[in-house]
Amino acid sequence: MTNALEITNLSKSYKGFHLQNVSFNLPTGYIMGLIGPNGAGKTTIIKTILNLVMKQEGSIKVFGLDHQKEEVAIKKRIGFVFDTPAFYPHLNLKQLKNVVAPFYEQWDNAVFDDLLDRFTLPLNKPLKQFSRGMNMKASIAISLSHHADFIIMDEPTSGLDPVIRREMLDVLRGIMQDENKSILFSSHVTSDIEQAADFITYVNQGQVVFSKTKDDVNESFAIVKGGNELLDTNTAKNFVAVRKGEFGFEALTADLNASKKIFGEQVVYDKASLEDIMFFHNLKFKSTN
């Protein structure tokens, strides 16, 4: 299995913010969702991959190539979509196409026209009159029209209504019918990631908390609920974090089978949503800092 993206020990410091030893891989042919609270480092990671932000340490390979030495070769095959589309607002899509297309050897007008049709985007309306959803779709249409093999998106669904978000996720799934394509997208809308991603990488405070397949996440994490009398320093070690209430505790386990061995039938095991997982990890971060 080849990797579309390989990040190894990436570090980058700003004033008051550090990316620390970030490492994860995205195999070719899959969608990875990058989750984390605001300010966790998602956008910095994405910008570093694209070399828009200079890394300080570590290595990044895209299609197996160094992201700085082979930047031009890589970028021809990458499509990126940012949360605020960086296009000239006074142009319409027809004009914009004429500006963008010459940059790409692989530009395909037929694909572009087809996507505009599918997204019901007008050719002759200036972009400044587009809604947020339309702008997002326009960005995606452009990134797909040069046959990008790797699509990187920063918060592509933020600010979109649920109907358009679903449409977008369908488009992503459609792209993945081609096993040579890969997608990395960041979002703090966890349901989007739950619905579309094959791999989930969770970052918090500049560190990777985990990078796993969605199935692994679903099978290893769980919410455990039970009476407070079951909690002591020993059993609590089993949890990422615990929230104690008056009538019982609620905790996140990262190892469901281990918890079952300890607590058996005395407690209730619920599926942990990504939101639960983020919430409890945040509790842990708060208590250790």
Binding site: G29, Y30, R173, G174, M176, Q177, E179, D198, K214, D215
Partner: peptide
Amino acid sequence: IRKLAQELHISVITTKR
């Protein structure tokens, strides 16, 4: 596996497994 994943709205990894 890719078609099935798309139709069922689940991960390719799941259908593959």
